[in-house]
């Protein structure tokens, strides 16, 4: 018998946690569960709603699951349930076994989310927009995974004294200096227009680019091209990189003619 579990919000770890408790209490094996986000999305019956059993799992599982829940891979819920099943069925130390294929795969998914969250904190750019209540900082950002919820505290701590909104295709975050609210995702059309300071920043970026240290492949490793379209300074990169060789040669020539 196969059961269907509905997790409406794609990164809702609490919904997964409640469902998993019921599944474990009913002793339903991982192979007998299908996870979906749509009502009536599968032909299978819902899992039996019965008692919920408190299950003790290592703290490291929860930390891993918080990251994996934000991954875009549809396999995240079934894989997490498989891990949970094995942790509670005789393999209590499984989290320590980084070489186990399942643990390895989930750790890699968690690492991908962690990396994406880190990039979001580095590559998100605010633009100042004037509205009825004064000025507000607004950013449009397209994360690779569902990274806004996990980075929201970072932005709130760093910009606590500013009013700001972060818009992504999945979710929006609004901070009014006192409280945060989340709203539905928006589209690129809702991105704010450039403000006056952005031009200073682009000029600063061009001026501090050192052609003698230009290393395009390393640069793309740190700042992959898919993030460029929302980074104001990235528009200058192709030109700076293509001229780097010539500029370096001229520097070398002029330094040798001056001697």
């Amino acid at each position: 018998m196969i059961y269907s579990i509905r997790i409406p919000q794609p990164d809702d770890l609490d919904a997964f946690r409640l469902a998993a408790r019921r599944l474990l209490a009913a002793r339903i094996e991982p192979a007998d569960v299908v996870f979906t986000n749509a009502i009536g999305g599968t032909l299978f019956p819902d899992a039996p709603s019965g008692e919920e059993k408190t299950t003790f799992v290592p703290c490291s599982f929860v930390l891993l699951a918080e990251k994996v829940a934000c991954h875009r891979d549809d396999a995240r819920w079934p894989l997490l349930y498989q891990l949970l099943w094995r942790l509670t069925h005789g393999e209590r130390t499984l989290m320590d076994q980084a070489v186990d294929p399942l643990v390895h795969r989930l750790r890699q998914m968690a690492a991908a989310v962690r990396r994406d969250q880190h990039r979001m904190t580095a590559f998100l750019r605010f633009r100042v927009v004037d509205d009825n209540d004064g000025s507000c900082c607004v950013a449009w950002y397209e994360p690779q995974h569902r990274s806004l919820r996990g980075t929201s505290l970072f932005f709130i701590n760093r910009f606590a004294s500013l009013r700001f909104s972060i818009l992504t295709p999945d979710l929006t975050l609004h901070w009014n200096r006192r409280s945060a609210t989340f709203g539905p995702g928006l589209s690129r059309r809702d991105a704010p227009p450039p403000d006056a300071v952005e031009d200073w920043w682009k000029r600063y970026y061009r001026a501090t680019f050192n052609p003698a240290r230009s290393n395009p492949s390393l640069m793309q490793g740190h700042m992959p091209k898919r993030f460029w379209r929302n980074l104001p300074e990235a528009a200058a990169i192709p030109d700076l990189v293509s001229k780097a060789g010539g500029r370096t040669d001229r520097m070398i020539r002029s330094s040798s003619t001056s001697r």
Partner: peptide, 20 residues
């Protein structure tokens, strides 16, 4: 920091950049 030549540098400095 690998040395890189700058225009109008001292004569004592090499004209070639050190490899990154």
């Amino acid at each position: 920091s690998a040395f890189s030549p700058v225009p109008q540098a001292s004569n004592l400095l090499p004209a070639q950049p050190a490899p990154l």
